[in-house]
Amino acid sequence: MYSFDVVRPKSVADAVAALGEEEAQALGGGQTLIPSLKQRLAMPSVLVSLASIDEIKGVSSEGGAVKIGGGTTHGAVAREVASSYPALAAMASNIGDPAVRNRGTVGGSLANNDPAACYPAAALASGATIVTNTREIAADDYFQGMFTTALEEGEIITAVSFPIPEKAAYIKFEQPASRFALVGVFVAKFGDGVRVAVTGASEEGVFRWTEAEAALSGDFSAAALDGLSVPADGLMTDLHGSAAYRAHLIGVLTKRAVAQA
């Protein structure tokens, strides 16, 4: 990697100030950034580690939602929301391996918005609110395409508030090499309707399958999805699956998620 400075602010305010420096880059759990640095694909002058900011860690309950600090690791989420939001805990417990889960953070995952990551599906299906140092952003407005979000330069995710659904499940069909989602479907049933979010499949990143949502909002059963399919247009084709295969998997996994929820 190229050489750079590292600062470890203890507060969000100090982190924001540090990110104001030229070529500064926020470092969450580093599960994407550190490999990029090792490959010399990124050249920040200063890395602003968010790992020492206690105020953005931990899980709390607030009126039918779980609020998870942006610096909370996947491992902590898996443990701490196991009873309040089991589908979210199950999703977190299945990201990567223990080393990844003990470093990677919810804020880092959402800020990166990898098109095959799990958290974007959970946030979008839950109708989560992404809380930053300056504002609150609804998940529906937050995800803006592959590796693209509503975050401004230097903006830090301090927390994510996940409304707790009546029923939910996430099914990930793993890409055989990376074990990221070849396709992942998160289904969440709320009192006012069902949300279905799909990761791993689209060239535009995570998206909602609105047709399925409408069908499931009327009848929350796998059978309600019979005859529905996602068009392959705009879905990814790579070594591990064609767009048509991904489209097919979306249907299969959505049914399975409904059955499991």
């Binding site: 055989p176 090499a177 990376s178 070594l239 591990h240």
Partner: peptide, 21 residues
């Protein structure tokens, strides 16, 4: 699982554990 794949230009597509299973 395993497959080493080149594209038509001779670029190695399965060049890391992200794509080589």
């Amino acid at each position: 699982l395993e497959n080493c794949v080149y594209d038509a230009d001779g670029q190695l597509l399965s060049a890391s554990y992200m794509d080589y299973a």
